[in-house]
């Protein structure tokens, strides 16, 4: 099995309340644990879950992990279920970080930037990949397909075997169900 690109490998998952950010984080944690890695996750719930910013910060390591809190310029990979939230968390990323961002604005703010401004700002970030998640959701007829595809993209950079990912996803959504099948398809779409 390949090893982590860095140890500890730090990930940030961001989104808006209700998008399933914490669900994705918990699946990564479970895959890491089953693959024999130590993993730590920090998250904030409560009032922020009411449509506000939601984030989970993950550390994966072969050895000890010290801090369950995001640090400036420290993360290697970002998964963003919402593009403005991706911009918000840029300060936590290393200059060589990879970003997987859903092209799916949640415009509940009066001063939300327009699409061209927003996407141009993200495309200017080295290492950023914008994913047309609404199209994928429509194709697969699955609301959370985008998130699963982003997870697949991230999985390419993590040293965990595909069968472990698939079994964790299946357990999450119910083994053998149609929903699981769609989630696996979306995940495979990202994994390539």
């Amino acid at each position: 099995m390949a090893d982590l690109a860095h140890d500890p490998y730090r990930l940030i998952l961001v989104g808006v309340g209700g998008q399933g950010t914490l669900t994705l984080a918990q699946m990564i944690m479970e895959v890491a644990r089953r693959s024999g890695y130590r993993a730590l996750q920090s998250e904030i719930h409560g009032m922020s879950q009411r449509g506000g910013t939601v984030y989970a910060y993950l550390s994966v390591s072969r050895g000890a992990i010290l801090t369950p809190a995001a640090m400036e310029a420290s993360s290697h990979l970002l998964i963003a279920l919402e593009p403005l939230e991706a911009l918000r968390y840029l300060p936590y990323l290393r200059s060589d970080a990879l970003l997987f961002v859903a092209r799916e604005p949640v415009r509940t703010l009066p001063d939300y930037p327009d699409d061209p401004t927003l996407f141009a700002a993200l495309e200017a970030v080295p290492g950023a990949t914008l994913v047309d998640t609404p199209a994928l959701a429509q194709t697969l007829r699955l609301k959370q397909a985008g998130g699963m595809a982003l997870l697949g993209l991230a999985a390419r950079r993590l040293p965990f075997d595909a069968p472990v990912w698939r079994s964790v996803i299946a357990e999450r959504f119910g083994p053998g169900t149609a929903v699981t099948e769609k989630n696996l398809q979306a995940f495979a779409h990202g994994l390539g």
Binding site: L93, R94, S95, T108, Y112
Partner: peptide, 18 residues
């Protein structure tokens, strides 16, 4: 000397009623 991948300020997203 940290060199974060920084950006300008981002519009805040306060919590809202469902």
């Amino acid at each position: 000397e940290s060199r974060p991948l920084s950006s300008g300020q981002t519009a805040t997203r306060p919590p809202v009623l469902c």
